[in-house]
Amino acid sequence: MTDIPSDTRTAAPSAGEEGAARRARAAVSPADPAAERRRARRSRRYRRDVRWSPYVLIAPFFLFFLAFGLFPLLYTGWASLHRVELGTPTDMEWVGLRNFSRLLDDDFFWNALRNTFTIGVISTVPQLLMALGLAHLLNYRLRGSMFFRVAILTPYATSVAAATLVFVLMFSRTDHGMINWGLGLVGIDAVDWQNGDWTAQFAVSAIVIWRWTGYNALIYLAAMQAIPKDLYESAALDGASRWQQFRHVTVPSLRPTILFTCVVSTIGATQLFGEPLLFSQGASPTGGSDHQFQTLGLYLYEQGWFNQHLGRASAIAWTMFLILVLIGLLNWVISRRIRRNA
């Protein structure tokens, strides 16, 4: 409570304080019109400064956002209403909402949507659960905790391309693949990971899980360290076991953080692209010979950059955007309910 007034003071001195300062100075030199004018000018300049400086300071972000965020977004929307080919991007033919309506009976689109959803579930759920567990473990007093914390973040810092390449080798069809070799040791026949529907989705999810678990764990860890120690102490006094403490103290306190990671992971899962692209042989945009692991992002890429239909690709992009808006609304509703319950 005590530092809040000092904050406001340094951030923006109020007009009242400024007025007081002027009065104090006016008392020193009662009549000096030139100085008075100078002061008035300065004060005007000052007021303008206070008023406009914040805008100037945030302008760079918004300029960039305008150029690389909003403009492409709107232009994509415009393109989605046209027949446009990559080879002749200036040649646009108005088709109205046809690019959207055709998605309704586009089997490849529904397949991609289904895949995006299932891969999203198989990758996000275990990922967040594991992250929560890892964070809980790292929250204990550990020897070399710094090392572990950095270590779990390294997958996040690895490039998708490098990670996926390694996973492709691990999930290789032949007995040379490390996973099939391991399965062979326990007497299970080699699995053709890439060509099976579920196995391929599982393999793609494995890459996602590997890359993002540590990142989420660190977010959870940060939130856990903000939980007051006395909560645990009183829980312990009440005779709560560690598991009970985790369930009844840690998890409820983490609720907003968990919601945040859920939203971020969902957005990430909706836009999943690099992993399935590189997981397929020859970086083909089809996501396997049956499109078995083609996500929405991949289908968008296939339509735009492989089939060269920018209009159709733009429509998919906007559909993805609308799906994300829906998810955002859902998140808003849920978080409001959580806040009300709390």
């Binding site: 003071r9 340094t10 001195p13 304080e17 400024e18 007081a20 300062a21 104090a24």
Partner: peptide, 8 residues
């Protein structure tokens, strides 16, 4: 405060 304002 005054000083701060001036410096500002």
């Amino acid at each position: 405060l005054q000083e701060d304002a001036m410096r500002y």
